[in-house]
Nucleic acid binder design. Structure first.
Length: 429
DNA sequence: TCTGGGGTCCTAGGACCC
DNA sequence: TCTGGGGTCCTAGGACCC
């Protein structure tokens, strides 16, 4: 047994040496940096900076939505709160039943964005091949910048520097591909460094329940359970073709992930979004279409403002409705021509709203988004582009400039001055 | 008990054309 | 008149992520 293992290691080593000699196929050196309880930690640091006597990381505390706006769910929790059995996504009501003295703090997007940038700037000292996977997670491709140093040592160094210089803790996952690095950073928290190399897959990953595997969600897990697949290891050893037959493309991906296979690159170049949307849960259900139209106009203004800031044009407009019974509906339609005009996009969105809205139904949420975005300069000048379009474009431009200069709410349409539902702009600028 | 908001990618079915 | 199959585009909706 021991001899077999030794031979396997020899074989692996020889293979690696061969790859290195080729230059290509060299093992990639990947880190995944994950901020522990990001929203809560960043809030705690900000409070301490402003003279707070307590560190909410040491208490049962959560960051939560606004219950008055009917969005009262847990968005982040402290370790102490976690010990009470509180989990992300559950209602604040539920959370309070589990922990009566729970402290709840509101969201602060601007602070999160700033804190995220600080982390990113620190990581830039190591490599510029950084993919900002979300506001609190980064992948780093360290392959070309180790200069003989050990990847694991760099991981510990990053973990230490973030703590000392920025005041919050991170988990660092160390591996040879993104999937394994991400799985590793998720092992035990907080403030830890974990490796997940190929030879560690059976002992560190295969023993975990399938719910721990990245990209396996609540709909897929019961289906796998029915196939008697409960651990990542069982999925890894399951018949590949059977999984593909049952789950299609997603099946191939989950089988490969279970086996630790992931050849995707760290996407470190800035990419413009493929779609932009805004949606809002209304503070009370609405069943009058003219009120829905007002909210829709506000949403459209915000979406098209962001669209124009990216110098993008939309080809498709999508409107979403959620009824009080949580039934979701969406309609979308292609625009006759790619545009970023508030007016053109709103008129189509309004049509979609009218064709979808069932008279008298109670609407809880309304959303709109634009998709199939293209660069502004990709638009081929159409024979139909009229002087009216140019005029509308100029109006939007003047409004945008005022908003950039004096703040988003400096200018509003007369039609929605009485709008009760104030919708927050998510981007700060 | 009361369930956010912003994304990406995929699938399935219908329309239309050759 | 009725029949087919394949390709592409469009739309509705679902699954998953943080």
């Amino acid at each position: 047994m021991i001899i077999l293992k030794f031979n396997k290691q020899m074989f692996d080593k020889m293979q690696k040496m061969l790859y290195n000699a080729n230059g290509d196929n060299m093992e990639r050196q990947i880190l995944h940096v994950d901020v522990n309880n990001a929203f809560l930690s960043w809030t705690a640091i900000d409070m301490l900076k402003h003279g707070s006597k307590v560190d909410i990381r040491e208490m049962a505390a959560v960051i939560g939505g606004d219950e008055n706006r009917r969005s009262g769910i847990v968005l982040a929790k402290s370790q102490r709160a976690k010990m009470f059995g509180i989990s992300t996504g559950e209602t604040l009501y539920q959370a309070r039943t589990k922990c009566p003295g729970l402290r709840v703090y509101p969201m602060n997007y601007k602070l999160y964005k700033e804190s995220s940038n600080k982390l990113y700037n620190l990581l830039l000292h190591y490599t510029d091949k950084i993919e900002r996977f979300s506001i609190d997670e980064c992948f780093m491709d360290m392959t070309d910048c180790l200069m003989g140093a050990k990847l694991l040592d760099k991981a510990y160094e990053i973990n230490k520097r973030v703590k000392e210089e920025l005041g919050f803790t991170v988990n660092v996952g160390v591996a040879h591909n993104k999937l394994l690095a991400k799985m590793a950073s998720d092992f035990t928290k907080p403030d830890r460094v974990h490796t997940l190399f190929e030879e560690e897959i059976p002992t560190k990953m295969w023993v975990l329940p399938i719910s721990e595997l990245f990209m396996l969600g609540r709909k897929t897990i019961p289906k796998l359970y029915n196939m008697r697949i409960k651990t990542i290891g069982q999925l890894a050893k399951a018949d590949k073709q059977l999984i593909i037959k049952k789950f299609g493309k997603h099946g191939l991906m989950m089988w490969e992930y279970a086996n630790g296979i992931d050849n995707s690159e760290v996407q470190y170049k800035f990419e413009k979004p493929k779609g932009i949307g805004n949606s809002t849960t209304l503070s009370a259900d609405i069943s009058e279409i003219n009120k829905l139209e007002e909210v829709l106009l506000t949403l459209t203004e915000q979406v098209t403002f962001r669209l124009r800031r990216y110098d993008l044009l939309a080809n498709v407009v999508n409107v979403q409705l959620r009824t009080k019974d949580f039934e979701d509906k969406s309609h979308q339609r292609k625009l006759p021509q790619a545009t970023s005009n508030t007016k053109d996009i709103y008129l189509l969105a309004k049509d979609l709203l009218h064709e979808m809205y069932v008279h008298g139904s109670q609407i809880r949420l309304i959303g709109m988004r634009v998709d199939n975005l293209i660069e502004k300069d990709e638009l081929q000048l159409s024979l139909f582009s009229s002087s009216d379009n140019n005029k509308q474009e100029k109006i939007d431009k003047v409004v945008d400039e005022l908003k950039q200069k004096y703040g988003y709410n400096s200018i509003t349409r007369a039609g929605k001055l009485h709008l009760e539902d104030k919708i927050k702009l998510k981007d700060n600028f």
